[in-house]
């Protein structure tokens, strides 16, 4: 990759890229821990995850600040401009994902107080997928491999399918057993939060595609392989 002639500018961009990576790492960890807190019935971990959100919020502020400074000082154009504007949006999407991890942790705290309704099978699967989506979006962001970002968009369909399956199954359980309803609703919410994380990951992927290719793929159905 060619570098900017101005080394200080290059350093500012590097700083921004690294801050995004750090934030993504924390975000992924929060997803992992929120579901682990639920599956392992570990309320300490749930509380820790809720507390960690604060750090992610700080990351977002830091990224905003770096972007504003670069916009003001460098007036970036072309791929630099796309990078900066997408960085702002990505930080926002990641912040939303971490908020959802907090929401899951709160449900975990409630559910952990009650006897377990049923073994968690599809929920961890969904979590795996969501984590993969975030990771792929960020990998694409770092490496410039646009295919990874297109992958994320496809994975969203799998997440949606799992969400439907979980909802159907919970409905069955809840209609049979009135005692199960409250826990059922919490678990259903957890699935819903994961499904929304997947949507945010899809946004991340679309932002990365725009950044790499300069092509807006929001609200288009199928990813073209390479038309431009």
């Amino acid at each position: 990759m060619t570098r900017h002639t101005d080394k200080e500018y290059e350093a500012e961009l590097r700083d921004l890229r690294e801050t995004i990576l750090v934030m993504a790492g924390r975000c992924e960890e929060m997803i992992e821990n929120s579901i682990r807190a639920l599956v392992d019935r570990d309320s300490d971990l749930a509380n820790k995850t809720i507390a960690a959100d604060h750090t992610v919020n700080r990351d977002e502020l830091r990224i905003d600040e770096l972007c504003f400074l670069i916009l003001a000082k460098r007036q970036p154009v072309a791929s630099d401009l796309r990078f900066i504007t997408q960085a702002l949006k990505m930080a926002n999407e990641m912040e939303r994902i971490s908020d959802l991890a907090v929401n899951i942790s709160e449900r975990a705290l409630l559910l952990n107080k009650e006897p377990q309704l049923k073994p968690y099978i599809d929920v961890p699967r969904m979590k795996e997928l969501v984590q993969k989506m975030v990771r792929n979006a960020i990998d694409a962001f770092v490496s410039g491999e646009v295919d990874k970002a297109y992958e994320v968009i496809k994975q969203d369909d799998e997440v949606d399918a799992l969400y439907q399956a979980i909802t159907r199954e919970l409905l069955k359980v809840m209609t049979r057993d009135i005692e199960a309803v409250e826990r059922g609703i919490h678990i259903q919410s957890v699935a819903k939060f994961l499904e929304r994380m997947a949507d945010h990951s899809e946004n991340l992927a679309e932002q990365v595609i725009f950044m790499i290719k300069g092509k807006d793929v929001r609200n288009t159905d199928l990813p073209e392989s390479d038309a431009s």
């Binding site: 570098r3 900017h4 002639t5 970036p76 072309a78 401009l81």
Partner: peptide, 18 residues
């Protein structure tokens, strides 16, 4: 040109790269 130029050389020039 200033949001997504086609040619790599344009991109490098306007973003200030070698």
């Amino acid at each position: 040109i200033f949001t997504s130029p086609k040619d790599q050389r344009t991109e490098e020039y306007i973003t200030g790269k070698f």
